[in-house]
């Protein structure tokens, strides 16, 4: 059997086992009845002039339906309870960017370290992957964690986990993506927190700019600073200080929480969700910024606290 290498894995397995036993019991029940009837009432043994005229039994049908309804609602509620955990990353998660390519995985850390087809994470600490794709849809699948999430070009999806076992855990691409689909493999290398801290520090020395620093450069190079300050003062556009995670009121009165997808959309289609009180004058950066540059700008905005 597969190792249970994340905090959520035992929960998912419990529900799996619950459904498995329920299914097995139902299946055995149906087949046993079927086989018994076939043997007991086989024509060689039972060939009455007329069979009994039984046309149904509403009470039995109703109780089967009601019993089953309760059962599937239990399964639903159990699945939902654990699913809510799967989609609710803790606040203190270590954030890592994932970019899927035909046919490899690229991981970028906050300190600028980039890895291909290997994701190094500390054991026992929540890790949140912020994922997108450079081309077609991929799906990040770690069987040992029991987790999977599609990577969709043009948007961010997230996946979080907390690893409980050190070692290497295979990663598969689970959404068909062409020629190299079955070779689009990677591994999650889970290490002890102390080892991770050492690894992270070492890498820091070697590297040049981290994503937030690249984003800061882009911020002036692309002229963002003409309309947006990072000091809290509003110019033509809202200030970006502390904007990440904030609830903003939009021009149409709706509220939105600023997250990666909202920032990305505001770069690509600035007029789609305007913050209230600001004119619709921002140009689109579609085609101007690469996926990695968008990530960098967002990393910079997130760093403005």
């Amino acid at each position: 059997m597969l190792p249970q290498a994340s905090t959520i894995a035992p929960h998912i397995d419990s529900l799996y086992n619950f459904i498995f036993w329920i299914s097995l019991i139902s299946f055995v029940g149906v087949v046993a009845a079927m086989v018994y009837f076939i043997i007991r009432y086989h024509r060689s043994r039972w060939d009455p002039f007329k069979t009994p005229y039984i046309t149904g039994h509403s009470a039995m049908e109703t109780s089967v339906s009601v019993g089953l309804f309760i059962l599937v609602m239990v399964i639903f509620a159990w699945g939902w309870k654990d699913y809510k955990k799967i989609v609710s990353p803790p606040q203190n998660s270590l954030e890592i960017s994932v970019l899927g390519h035909q046919w490899f995985w690229e991981f970028e850390y906050a300190n600028g370290k980039k890895l291909t087809n290997e994701l190094v994470v500390p054991k026992g600490r929540p890790v949140k992957l912020i994922m997108s794709s450079a081309d077609v849809i991929h799906s990040f699948f770690v069987p040992n964690f029991r987790l999977k999430q599609d990577l969709v070009p043009g948007t961010y999806t997230t996946l979080w986990f907390q690893a409980t076992q050190t070692g290497e855990h295979p990663v598969f691409c689970a959404e068909y993506c062409g020629t190299g689909h079955s070779k689009m493999l990677a591994k999650v290398k889970v290490v002890e927190p102390t080892e991770y801290a050492r690894w992270e520090k070492e890498e820091k020395k070697e590297k040049g700019l981290n994503p937030a620093e690249v984003g800061k450069e882009l911020f002036t190079k692309k002229g963002c600073n003409v309309c947006h300050t990072v000091t809290g003062q509003a110019l033509i556009g809202p200030s970006l200080l502390g904007i990440f995670g904030k609830n903003e009121e939009l021009a149409d009165g709706k509220k939105i929480q600023v997250d990666e997808n909202y920032l990305r959309e505001s770069l690509m289609q600035p007029q789609a969700k305007l913050v209230k009180g600001f004119p619709p004058v921002m140009p689109t950066f579609q085609g101007t910024l690469t996926d990695e540059e968008v990530n960098a700008v967002i990393a910079y905005i997130k760093s403005l606290k």
């Binding site: 929960h11 998912i12 799996y16 399964i75 699945g79 654990d82 799967i86 987790l147 999977k148 689970a174």
Partner: peptide, 14 residues
């Protein structure tokens, strides 16, 4: 049923 249950589907999907 396994695939309709959200959490289990996350592991078994595709």
């Amino acid at each position: 049923l396994f695939l309709a249950a959200l959490s289990v589907d996350v592991s078994l999907h595709d």
